[in-house]
Design a protein around this nucleic acid. Sequence first.
RNA 1: GCGCCCAUAGCUCAACUGGAUAGAGCAUCCGCCUUCUAAGCGGACGGUUGCAGGUUCGAGUCCUGCUGGGCGCGCCA
Length: 578
Amino acid sequence: MKDEIKAALEGLAAKEGWPEGLPFDRVTAEPPRDPSHGDIATNAAMILAKPVGAKPRAIAEPLAEALQALDAVDSVEVAGPGFINIRLASDVWRAQVGAILEAGAAFGSSSVGAGRKVNVEYVSANPTGPLHAAHARGAVFGDALAALLEKAGFVVAREYYINDAGAQVDTLARSAYLRYREALGETVTIPEGHYPGEYLKDVGKAIAERDGDRWLSEPEEAWLEPIRSFAIDLMMADVRKDLIALGVRMDRFSSERALVQDRAVDRVLAKLEADGLVYTGVLEPPKGKTPDDWEPRPQLLFKATDFGDDVDRPLKKSDGSWTYFSNDIAYHLDKLERGFPEMIDVWGADHGGYVKRMKAAVTAITGGAGDLDVKLCQLVHLFDGGKPVRMSKRAGTFVTLSDVLDAVGPDVLRFIMLTRRNDQTLEFDYQKVSEHSRDNPVFYVQYAHARACSVIRNAGETFGADELLDPALSKASMASLTDPDEIGLIKLLAGWPRIVESAAEAHEPHRVAFYLGDVAAAFHGLWNKGREDARLRFILEDDRDMTLARMALVRATATVIASGLGVMGVTPVEELRE
RNA sequence: GCGCCCAUAGCUCAACUGGAUAGAGCAUCCGCCUUCUAAGCGGACGGUUGCAGGUUCGAGUCCUGCUGGGCGCGCCA
């Protein structure tokens, strides 16, 4: 439709002798917020008024006439400051029902991504313990965003960055070593600065089983490396298990240690040096909170300020090893070299202070060709019946992801995590999200899908199940769908591809959850209309044509809900029974 | 002290990247079950979009300055 408006505009421009180079790209054609304004509204007249040198209405009137002539258009009116409101013929909408059924699960898929490759990095929790509840949000967000981008025609890589190179994995190894001694019969106390979690007891036992007592009398230099890599493997095995339980499947796990060993950091540093973006300097102490052991020290610095950061950032620690930042630069260059100029990182809110420098680094190493979007997921506050949840069986201080999965299951967890914009904090109450009521969005949407399936089952008893399969229904005559709420539901369903495109481009998967809530509400509303007016019931045993048309609409509804839930990674249930 | 994020109905949140009269749910009140799942639906009530300016045909959305809350601030990741 937008193309047709543009064509009409160009025709008009030629006819009226408007100047060249009009800002047609700023002209929009989209459904207005208020449905009473029609199906499509365009701001063309207001955008073009100034460059053309005419009043908006003087442009709108002839444009409206041109649009009126189109077959698909029912009526056109000029409104407000110069909006042109277009109402499509209702047959255009009815035809959408068949189109949805023909497309099936593929309905909503778009090609706006045009096969462009996007790398989505998410979770990336340190391999020093089990995933906890806070990781769930980033995991679900990243996974849904990846699915959404795929639906919109991007080629997506889901990726997990394993931070297995820093000091903390040495701490992990030392902690595991103590548990190893414990497993061999010693009584140990876990000193300050080590990981106290009980989960490391299993690691200690596993080391004892594999290696026996060979490390007991060895110095740290001997056992640190083998125990570290063994412990990391076990931790990552747990992480993978939790991710699978949550329904998250990564395409790739990238190891920080492997990058360092591969000299990737040296290479990226050489590149930065060649571009004159590295120097040795002394940083000012941080204001407000000066560390006790602060002393001015010359450091190898990256000129982050050249790319919009507030200060230049250190690349080397005082012991000469690379900072985490250096490794991360190398990692992002690695992504670029693997063919991903478009990158999305999903981080927790506590990494907010890191965004500018990472974007600066990506701009620097890609010469501006790379594009990094960082999505910060705000905190999740867990409640159980209004009371904060703090206890954890395994980790001591944190609620683990598997605790939450045990409590509510993956479908509920995934859906709820997407019912807030990522930059809003989220309250998650075990009891509320398990309720079967209107104010639980998971249930509400699932119920709509189950109800649709139920209707089809019931209709099958009268009309025969074969008649109600999608291929048959898609060819049914939709002419009898005339109720305004039926047309309204069709319009909503037909908007699914638009939702996919806009949510994907904005990197905002939560829009899918809200959209499905709208679809469910429209469907439940239509259902209840049949209670007040029997002719509006979906199944009319004495009116085969009407029933088949409505079954097509019901199936289309179920198809769109299932498609949306698919993007969210939530199972569409076919029956909800107590 | 500096940076990033947030502030929308009594509560929890939306608002399609700047569009028209800012929308839902909960709560409160009034209605709807001999009928396809009432686990639902309809209606009423509810707003100076934290404050003050600015940009333009048009601002919850963009810019500046405040206020309040969250996160972070060399050699942790």
